[in-house]
Design a protein around this nucleic acid. Structure first.
Length: 584
RNA sequence: GCCAGAAUAGUUCAGUGGCAGAACGAUCGCUUCGUAAGCGAUAAAUGUGGGUUCGAUUCCCGCUUCUGGCUCCA
């Protein structure tokens, strides 16, 4: 372990105390690992009775341990000593023994930590000096979950107990408060409150239905990106959502991706699959005619709806679904143009994120892990992968983007640049992706005629700026907590007449706003003005237009935005104001 | 898929082994109001299939769906 902050030491020490508390209650418990994580810590256990775990009770126990001011003592031990320590009959610690073996392989020294005189854990540390340094009110055990030993599904599943911990009670309370507030901006809650989308059990899990207001927003996203792509030389296409089995044999999806695909529809002896990706359809379009180097780079784009049979436990709102629409495109490029094309794509991403005022994102270079035979097993030509990885790396460097490398995160057909962000609760997610693919040309027999008159394989760039409309939409809703910028708002203006007496004037204003291309609605005057203002505010409608006798007399309107009272103005000026804001 | 928790009206929640309750929303009526909740009435629910029981929304089991993790992933 490298240098750690004091808070990390506290968190790690709390993990040890959690294990200690568990062992007191369940002497037969077997310990896995207990590291620190963002905001806290966890510890994995085996051989304990889940139904007997009571988190508040455990918390109490840990607080008692803290108050005993137990010392943390580090000791270096030989492998033999370590094995003996964790092989005490009758309750040996097999997981610790496995870890000792792993450490031996690395030839690193083995260290243990003693807490008080009862508890010993295999641990590199560092820790605080004694439990007295922990504020007993500064932590909270939060949840119980299952987790596979060493992160592999093939291993046994352990029981993981999570906790959050901070320097003091105040910071803990602030964190808990922040989480509670985050829930209010959760796209699932806002989606329900504002009537944006729904999911129906009868239709199927992970298959969202877009309601009128949600669709209004989505349509604007589509229009925005459609225009931008067209300006940047993309050609849009539309292709079917299903295809015959042979296509997916050829693409490698049935070999690598079958688990994530819906089972085939069998009809007239043919097997049709719902498509999990759009690439093969676009390759078919590429192949439709003979291509010349003059046509390249050829940029084929589609709002492509795909279906993936995601495992049931992973589905979540619009973030992880089984049917979604990608803002997809495939760029067929020559080797010479490849880097500049990737730079183009990177720049396009940058523009989009600027337009949406998205700042908290970072680039991840996702590379293959050749040890993972299942995913990258038929990769015979490592050189080609390296070539792809290097060109992505170079493009990132030359455009001055900082990035992190992630081994094993590549797609089965190539390395990629993923654009990562964090959700409300601090969880990492991909919102956009750029992939380099040297394989499809060969698999699909794609080619172009080069300057020299010879056939050559194109290199395919897969890219999705919005990732999927669904996820990007969710991300936007959460980022703005439902207060979308004016140009995206499904209802931009709500007109409130103070009483029915002003109804016809309100109607006239409504018509004129609509004619001006502004999304406006009129509220019925059956409720008090205050109530209608409140309702509109809760619906996150950017502008309210209020009309009473004063406005009629002066032929003006009274405007109120989410943030403040904009005062009285003429309709023309209001329309001008709105249009300027939308333009921006 | 696995681990843990949950499912009561359109929504958010309460409650009970013996007639299921509120708030908001909806509908209807009254009210016509100057910037975040006017008044009244009406309609509306125990996810689903089994079991235990005289009787189950409540207890038990299966399924479905949701939430949080793990693996996976746009």
């Amino acid at each position: 372990m490298t240098k750690q902050s004091n808070l990390e030491k506290i968190r790690h020490s709390l993990a040890h105390l959690l294990a200690m508390a568990i062992l007191e209650k369940f002497p037969k418990a077997q310990l896995g690992i207990g590291p620190t994580i963002e905001n806290g810590f966890y510890y994995d256990f085996d051989k304990i009775q889940t139904d007997q775990i009571n988190l508040p009770e455990l918390e109490k126990k840990i607080k008692e341990l803290i108050k005993q001011n137990l010392k943390f003592k580090k000791e270096s031990v030989s492998p033999a000593q370590a094995k003996k320590l964790f092989n005490k009959k009758p309750y040996a610690q097999p997981y610790k023994l496995e870890l000792i073996k792993d450490i031996q392989k690395t030839k690193k020294p083995i260290t243990i930590y003693k807490t008080g005189d009862k508890f010993i854990d295999l641990c590199a540390g560092p820790h605080i000096k004694s439990t007295g340094e922990i504020d007993p009110e500064s932590f909270k055990l939060t949840k119980i979950a299952g987790a596979y030993w060493k992160g592999s599904e093939k291993n046994s599943q352990l029981l993981r107990i999570y906790g959050v911990a901070f320097e003091n009670k105040k910071s803990l309370d602030e964190y808990l408060e922040k989480m509670a507030l985050a829930e209010r901006c959760d796209h699932r809650n806002i989606g329900e409150r504002l009537g944006l989308f729904m999911i129906d059990e009868q239709i199927g899990k992970g298959l969202p239905l877009w309601l009128p207001r949600g669709f209004a927003i989505r349509k604007k996203l589509e229009d925005y990106i459609f225009e931008l792509e067209r300006e940047n030389g993309y050609q849009h296409v539309l292709t079917p959502h299903i295809a015959k089995e042979d296509l997916y044999k050829k693409s490698g999806h049935l070999a690598h991706y079958k688990e994530d695909m819906y089972a085939p529809i069998i009809i007239d002896n043919d097997r049709y699959y719902l498509r999990p990706m759009n690439c093969p359809h676009h390759h078919s379009i590429y192949k439709h005619t003979k291509r010349s180097y003059r046509e390249l780079p050829l940029r084929i784009a589609e709002f492509g709806t795909v279906y993936r049979y995601e495992r049931s436990g992973v589905l979540s709102g619009l973030i992880r679904v089984r049917g979604f629409t990608q803002n997809d495109a495939h760029i067929y490029s020559t080797q010479e143009n490849l880097e500049s094309e990737i730079v183009n794509v990177l720049n396009l991403h940058k523009k989009v994120f600027e337009d949406f005022e998205i700042k908290d994102y970072w680039y991840r270079l996702s590379l293959p892990d050749f040890k993972n035979k299942e995913k990258f097993g038929d990769v015979k030509n490592k050189k080609i992968w390296d070539q792809g990885s290097n060109i992505l790396k170079k493009a990132l460097k030359n455009t001055g983007h900082k990035f992190v490398e992630a081994i094993g995160e590549a797609s089965f057909y190539g390395p990629k640049i993923d654009i990562q962000t964090k959700d409300l609760y601090g969880k990492e997610d991909t919102i956009a992706t750029i992939q380099v693919d040297y394989y499809s040309a060969q698999k699909f027999d794609l080619s172009y005629i080069g300057k020299d008159g010879k056939e050559k394989p194109p290199i395919v760039i897969h890219r999705a700026i919005f990732g999927s409309f669904d996820r990007f939409f969710a991300f936007l809703i959460e980022k703005t907590c439902g207060n979308l910028p004016l140009w995206l708002a499904p209802v931009q203006v709500k007109i409130l007449a103070i009483s029915e007496n002003q109804d016809s004037y309100a109607e006239k204003i409504l018509k004129e706003l609509k004619t001006a291309g502004i999304l406006a609605e009129k509220a019925t005057s059956n409720e008090t003005l205050s109530k209608r203002v409140r309702e509109a505010q809760m619906q996150k409608i950017p502008y309210l237009v209020i009309i009473g006798n004063n406005e009629i007399a002066s032929n003006t309107i009274s405007v109120r935005s989410v943030k403040n009272d904009e005062g009285v103005m003429t309709l023309e000026n209001f329309i001008k104001k709105i249009k300027t804001e939308i333009e921006k």
